[in-house]
């Protein structure tokens, strides 16, 4: 198909645009870069989280550098998990001048809805090197149940 034929019809022009976009999408996929910017969903809430799921567990990872482990508040209510805390500013003495100030501080709170029922008694949390790892085992009892259909 040559271009001049397509350009005569505005509808066909739209299809060419669509085809181009699809080609771009697939070429990105073929570059073997699963963590490319395209797949990065940007939340605007602190802390940024990564959610993983394996057999029977959800795993939520959050980067919260510079907070003490006992100052992170975690709570679960129903199917909502809430992370709460505060990153305190550096304590400075007198006569201090800043050259750079890129690290932000302040309070944060973030709630995450869990798509399935988790066993809230068995939730584990670990904070190491500024990364919070929350392990949420799925509640086996609330999993899908098979119902047999009887016939008369």
């Amino acid at each position: 198909m040559t271009i001049w034929e397509i350009n005569r019809d505005p509808w066909l022009g739209e299809f060419v645009r669509l085809q181009k976009n699809m080609n771009n999408l697939f070429s990105t996929l073929n570059e073997n870069a699963p963590s490319s910017e395209l797949f990065l969903k940007r939340g605007r809430l602190f802390p940024p989280i990564n959610v993983l799921k394996d057999d029977g567990n959800y795993k939520i990872l959050a980067e919260i550098p510079g907070v003490k482990a006992d100052e992170i508040e975690l709570s679960v209510q129903g199917e909502t998990l809430t992370i709460k805390g505060e990153r305190k500013p550096e304590i400075l003495g007198d006569n201090v001048s800043y050259h750079r100030r890129e690290r932000s501080h302040g309070s944060f709170q973030r709630s995450i809805s869990l798509p399935e029922k988790v066993d809230s008694d068995k939730i584990g949390a670990n904070y190491k090197n500024g990364v919070l790892t929350i392990t949420l085992p799925l509640d086996k009892a609330s999993g899908p149940r098979r119902i047999s259909v009887s016939t008369e």
């Binding site: 001048s97 890129e102 090197n129 500024g130």
Partner: peptide, 28 residues
Amino acid sequence: GVYFTPAVDIFENSNELTVVVDMPGINS
């Protein structure tokens, strides 16, 4: 591997220069 530019605070007083670097997930 992938390397990122960490967020940094730098401040100084009359005695010393202090550099604070956010590097979550890194072992000492």
